[in-house]
Design a protein around this nucleic acid. Sequence first.
RNA 1: GGAGCCAUCGCCAAGUGGUAAGGCCGCAGCCUGCAAAGCUGCUAUCCCCGGUUCAAAUCCGGGUGGCUCCUCCA
Length: 465
Amino acid sequence: MHIYDSVKKEKLPFEPLIDDEVSIYVCGPTVYDDAHLGHARSSLSFDLLARTLKALGYSVTMAKNFTDIDDKIIKKVRESGRSIEELTTYYIDRYLSDMDAINVLRSDIEPKATESMDAIESMIARLIKLGFAYRIDSGDVYFDTSRDAKYGDISHMVSDDTVSRIEHTSQKRSSKDFALWKACNDSDDICFDAAFSSGRPGWHIECSAMIEKHFEGNDEYSIDIHGGGADLLFPHHENEAAQSRCATGREVAKYWMHNGFVQIDGEKMSKSLGNSFFLKDALEVYDGEILRYYLNSIHYRNDFNFNEEDLLVSKRRLDKLYRLKKRVSPTKPTNPSSRFKSALLSAMSDDLNISVALSVVDDMIMETNEKLDNNPKDKVLKRETLANIELVDQILGVGYRDPFEYFQIGIEQELKDEIEALLLVRAEAKKVKDFATSDRIRDQLTTMGISIMDSPEGTQWEKLL
RNA sequence: GGAGCCAUCGCCAAGUGGUAAGGCCGCAGCCUGCAAAGCUGCUAUCCCCGGUUCAAAUCCGGGUGGCUCCUCCA
């Protein structure tokens, strides 16, 4: 396995801290709203990573946090009149069910900030005690970036005070310093008691604290891989790394991976630009598995320009996989072809080279179709092929459905019966060579959005998209 | 103002020094009553200029264009 480390900016051979074990921490969402396509892409990227590492034989432990306390959440609590627990629980459930819809494997650990307050408080207290952090009169606690010689090594950001756009707080020693703890201001703030003040954690500290709480690591690092969106590199990961380094005496992660953005019409998707696209809205229009294939079809580090035309191309590619699955069903899978397996794993082992991986899948489909054209009853081939498709599911997370149902997504039983009835009439017409009638029925089905294909074994139909 | 990423066939997209994967679309053919599906074949010298090298899409310098980060953000 080779991984592109976005801190070292080079592709490196992956060597885990502990043999055959991999620890991954991914920055999860702040739960004050529904998940958008960007969350989906991030989830999907690291899902691919976890699946690949598992297929390579590693035992993977993945954590993804939920930030369930912060300014935006408090704002929403005030606006909605709902309790914070009610609100965050709702959005956590929404997030998980949306991710389920695109077949993202659940993380092994899903820590919440509010359930990690002990770890957070203890880390902040330690940073104060060691002189890496200071408390100001308001009760806020800041990290003193000047005390960390390695501050800046993660993002390579040489931030100059004169051009910094960060607001200066009068008592902050440097504009680069950041909040570890924010004291309560208003009476209706949501606060937690701590030794330094009643307040709530800053944005970055929870990740450091959770990693310390849930992972052992070794003398040098706490975890193997730290992931997140490209926008988190600075300041979030820079600050997180600094906190962890100073509090624990070791680096937080050996490898850093950052996924690229989802763009709409060539621009970053964001709330402020008003072009954000909720995953749940996309799921109302497009099937989750097709969305998954599409969102994963481009390398995770590249920017992703979301558009329907490309999504339909992805659907066509996935259709081919399912047509092959139809051809080999029903049968019992044996073992995947070793040539196919090694080609697929080798592609994914190269920093998740999905383009090559998908072309390996396409090659397998084409070769198998050709062989089946020549020998339609090759049982051994069929069984191996089904195992190949199961491997595709295991590593890429697509192709898991019943192939006949796949082509009938969204078709009601009533319509199915109607289609079957029409096909019966058409079969009769064909039998007596009444092609005018059979073609008329085919046209009728096309109008209904149904594509049909004749074969020696009978006529099959598919829903056109 | 500072920092970084990217630019490959009509479209999407691999390839990071050794002579351009794959998909979609298109064209031709096999198959088919005709189609569809499936299969076969065909289609690029890599934004521009200069440099390094026996050899560059791949490295270096300079342009141009697009995007991102420096503010909550996946």
